[in-house]
Design a protein around this nucleic acid. Structure first.
Lengths: 334, 334
DNA sequence: CTGAAAGCGCTAACAG
DNA sequence: CTGTTAGCGCTTTCAG
């Protein structure tokens, strides 16, 4: 294999200036559309730039101007999860409108990895970080904000620090799902949830229990959590439905769990299901869901990070609504 | 609204050096784990760094060392499409293993926007670009490679330049789907496809037509393309199935089209369907698909960009396999 | 093993 | 309207 020849160095502003016979600064002014340059001078510079194939080095520019890039980091569990992908899409849209790039990294829900990824982004001087945290310690977040790197918590609220946070109305969403299932006639309802340490799961569980208590059905409530993928959810649902006095309706704690539960339900005709998170095939499959707008969440988070307050004042705490979409899976008990 | 106080400047290497009483260079050596530093000197430097909360400025480092960042750009149609999200995930995995960050941008299939996004990434001196192109002109790609920014084409092969390319076996995949449907007994088959200008669509169509000809069924082939979202696909499928001599089986050109076609099929019992791209709910819905591994595609693309050849030699041209997954929707004609 | 000086490409500040 | 000087934070010579 022949060695790759070193790439031609890209032309610099200095070369453009030399070719057009002006000073560095004048060339800089022209290429940044700054005022106070004679029209013909500007033309000469632009011609030279074009001839050399000059592309300004944003790295150098950003470095010079403040050692902070025009990029924002997004740290999530897994980009392949449609929910996160849509959050990312929303964030991207809003950030790009403001001239920022989006850097994405997946943690696989590993707290150590999360910290590593955040550190790396800080080292690269991102303008801010959107974080779907899976860790329990976030004291470093205050320091980073003081040092100019705001961290916005997305989807999962930290319970140890005060910081910008964009979350869903998790408990409310599930509570309304319970009310709905109760109204349809169910008395024994099961909740299958994600890892118990995740704030989203804790809130959804709280909403579930509150709803069941309010209906006087505390005894009919069953909770199984710790299911972080669809296989685990399928096993949990299967076990739940095999028990004596099995629930007649299931609430799935998120989109992965809904898929797993659906597979389990294939062998249990007549069991009702409501899933948290809408998903592409939900309508086709006739699955009732607690729906919300992941892209809006991404946009709101981007908005907050761009507001970019580095003091502790004016923290953004936003809770986005969910709404119940009733479909065929909201069937009454047999 | 009170003005945000300027963030404290982050401590620099110079401050670390000063605090530990060594030169800039020595501090630099320590923090880069370079050899030739006395153990106790190193300890002093590290202690100072920790005390100041020093985080090295990767921006400055990368700038100094070669004006190229440790990031790679990914330019795709729409990150919210699960197919692209999974490609991105694969690329991310591979890149991160090599110490690179992933910057993602969506074009919404707008060629102008694509060019803009690529330019921006070049300006930011990304190490390379993974491009799912929707444009027809790519002559600039050669220049960029010579200047040190390799562009790898992903999913869609350019027909105007020779460059690293990772694509699927589009025509083969569809051809096998046709053979399969023919074997099941179908004689009239429809293909619903994406925008005709996309190379993927052209290849899939070619595979379709070849398959139909090979089966002596050229007369039974119907193609409708130009459907870039599920709504358009639903309309196309509905129209197709309403016609006299309607096809008894449909092939959907991609995951969005499959969803649209499925909605149309809800009113047409007994029509068979095979979709290009596997999707989460395909098994639950019992839909046969031409499956492949989007994450592998992302990984292969990342691999190619990391190989990073800036000469024209040794171009990577890889075609990834697809395989047919037969499910209930492969029903025989009525 | 350690340090001093130079400079990556660009812009800010100030002169002309 | 234009140019000169200095320097962002770091690494890279090259000398001790």
């Amino acid at each position: 294999m022949p060695a790759t020849p070193p790439p031609l160095p890209r032309p610099t502003l200095r070369q453009v200036a030399a070719l057009s016979g002006v000073s560095l600064k004048t060339a800089s002014r022209v290429l940044n559309d700054e005022p106070h340059v004679a029209a013909d001078t500007a033309d000469r510079v632009r011609a030279a730039a074009r001839r050399l194939g000059f592309r300004r080095n944003m790295l150098a520019r950003e470095f010079r101007t403040g050692a902070r890039t025009a990029s924002v980091g997004l740290v999530i569990g897994d980009l392949a999860n449609p929910f996160y992908a849509r959050v990312a899409r929303g964030a991207e849209r809003r950030l790009r409108a403001a001239g920022f790039q989006l850097i994405i990294a997946s943690t696989d829900e590993d707290p150590e990895r999360e910290r590593l990824l955040v550190d790396e982004m800080v080292d690269r001087r991102v303008r801010g970080i959107l974080l779907v945290t899976c860790a329990s310690e976030h004291d470093y977040v205050d320091d980073e904000r003081r040092l100019g790197t705001p961290v916005v918590f997305v989807d999962r609220a930290p319970d140890d620090v005060r910081a910008d946070t964009i979350v869903l109305d998790n408990s409310g969403g599930v509570e309304r799902a319970v009310e709905h299932l109760v109204a349809v006639g169910h008395r024994r309802i099961g909740l299958i949830g994600d890892l118990a340490r995740l704030p989203t799961q804790r809130e959804r569980r709280a909403g579930f229990e509150r709803g069941m208590r309010a209906a006087g059905l505390a005894d009919g409530a069953v909770v199984v959590d710790g299911c972080h993928d669809d296989a685990a959810a399928e096993r949990a649902a299967t076990a739940l439905l095999a028990a004596p006095d099995a629930p007649t309706a299931l609430i799935a704690g998120n989109n992965r769990i809904t898929l797993g539960a659906l597979r389990a339900l294939a062998h249990h005709e007549g069991v009702a299901l409501v899933g948290f998170d809408d998903f592409e095939a939900a309508e086709l499959l006739g699955i009732s869901v607690i729906a919300h707008d992941p892209e809006l969440m991404g946009e709101a988070a981007a908005e907050a990070v761009l507001a970019g307050r580095t003091d502790a004042v004016g923290i953004v705490q936003r809770t986005l609504e969910t709404h119940l979409v009733v479909r065929a899976s909201s069937r009454p008990p047999a």
